[in-house]
Write a protein that binds this DNA or RNA. Sequence first.
DNA 1: TTCACAATGTTAATTTTTTCACAAAAAAAC
DNA 2: GTTTTTTTGTGAAAAAATTAACATTGTGAA
Lengths: 210, 210
Amino acid sequence: MKHLPHKTIERLSQYRRALLICHETGKSHIYSHEIANIQHITAVQVRRDLMLIGYTGTLRKGYNVKELIDLIGSIIDSDEGIHVAIIGMGNLGRALINYFDGKRSKLNIVAGFDTNPDKIGNTMSGVPCYANEDLEKIIREKDIKIGILTVPADHAIESAELLVKAGVKGILNYTPKPINVPNDVYLEEYDMITTLEKVAFFVKLQEMVK
Amino acid sequence: MKHLPHKTIERLSQYRRALLICHETGKSHIYSHEIANIQHITAVQVRRDLMLIGYTGTLRKGYNVKELIDLIGSIIDSDEGIHVAIIGMGNLGRALINYFDGKRSKLNIVAGFDTNPDKIGNTMSGVPCYANEDLEKIIREKDIKIGILTVPADHAIESAELLVKAGVKGILNYTPKPINVPNDVYLEEYDMITTLEKVAFFVKLQEMVK
DNA sequence: TTCACAATGTTAATTTTTTCACAAAAAAAC
DNA sequence: GTTTTTTTGTGAAAAAATTAACATTGTGAA
Ligand SMILES: NC(=O)c1ccc[n+]([C@@H]2O[C@H](COP(=O)([O-])OP(=O)(O)OC[C@H]3O[C@@H](n4cnc5c(N)ncnc54)[C@H](O)[C@@H]3O)[C@@H](O)[C@H]2O)c1
Ligand SMILES: NC(=O)c1ccc[n+]([C@@H]2O[C@H](COP(=O)([O-])OP(=O)(O)OC[C@H]3O[C@@H](n4cnc5c(N)ncnc54)[C@H](O)[C@@H]3O)[C@@H](O)[C@H]2O)c1
């Protein structure tokens, strides 16, 4: 296995999510077309992705759910797990902490940061909130590799700079303000408005065709 | 202009977001490479997208910010605007309402739905919360075209069915439970864990190379 | 006034991603 | 025991998306 396409990585994560649900329900094997239906893609696409990671199913029985979950884990997870921080413990930050809580054993949100004195020192869903002044120290101490930005847009850039300076290697930016990072920091940006506008566009398109 | 690629639609939305910021700061023209830098893509990509929507800039002056904002609006927005509902007024639902509030004049969240009696009848950031029982009635009355799912994952499927039955034409699913919709309903699903896992994967990859 | 530059617009090439098509083989049916 | 069915795995083709290359031209410098 040499290079996995970005899209494949995303799908592997999604496959695993679906597989975990299957596993809970006691299903031991699954066909490529079943996975495909769940994800709204084609069975060939699924088989191609699994081919890329070198997994081989059983003819006519499909894929072993448990095995596949573990294999995907061995590819996308870090063995030792990875520590994550949230910058901005507001509505979205707290919602995320709540949501992630315990969902993936290898992804742990271990610190939150804020500038609001009322929040600093508190704990939310088990995650301690620190002051921005201690960010660099805590990030290094706790070996945090990824920062999730949920500060007000006006503070996105300075927060990103803080994170980079502290040595973070990945940033997930949920503010609507695009940021810049050095080459060795992996950046992903997501704006919910973009997604909603896309949905709205295709709804409009469909109305027009009709 | 015939078919706009999905990716182009997303980028147009992002370009507009960047352009709106420029417009506020009083900048009247912008070069393709400036837009490209903001979005972390290439200038050719920007020019190609604008070519697809038939917009022509001024040689050596770049693109007229205001004009381009309006043109993108004329393509991705519906003239009359589009009404949106949130199903599940919990952490994420409320955060979204708060966030969208007034951001895009053509995209209005006009109703929220919940099953919790304490929430029903209240208003959050100007959005009234209704009971699920009234969903179909309200959706039709208010001509709501898009539903955003932020209910607990266990209730995603039933909520989606409710929305479809009520005649919604687009669904944006933020729960981690994949849903199915008829062909004439446009569906977009997004799971933050997938994005975070992707970031984590590339961080891991970079560590390994080093 | 001419020249060099800097930016757009677009055709062609390349790369990436997806789909097609089908061989192989295990299981089921007969 | 043979045939049919079903599902995997993959080379080849197609489609989609991106990038390269470059002609064009307005602008300002010389
Ligand atoms: N709410 C949403 O659904 C949503 C969706 C998409 C994007 N966003 C974006 O996410 C960000 C947060 O949204 P929210 O609704 O949680 O806002 P919020 O105001 O509730 O939370 C922001 C938090 O960041 C803190 N903060 C401010 N400056 C800071 C700094 N320099 N360093 C650290 N913390 C700081 C504030 O004290 C506050 O606790 C915004 O940029 C918003 O545009 C929100
Ligand atoms: N919190 C996040 O950051 C986050 C991120 C990604 C995805 N999600 C997903 O979004 C969903 C909501 O997350 P949350 O943190 O807001 O949860 P939450 O528990 O705070 O909110 C859920 C809300 O839905 C309401 N509800 C329950 N059943 C309902 C039904 N059948 N119809 C209408 N409303 C109903 C509840 O009363 C509650 O108000 C979950 O599926 C979660 O997995 C959350």
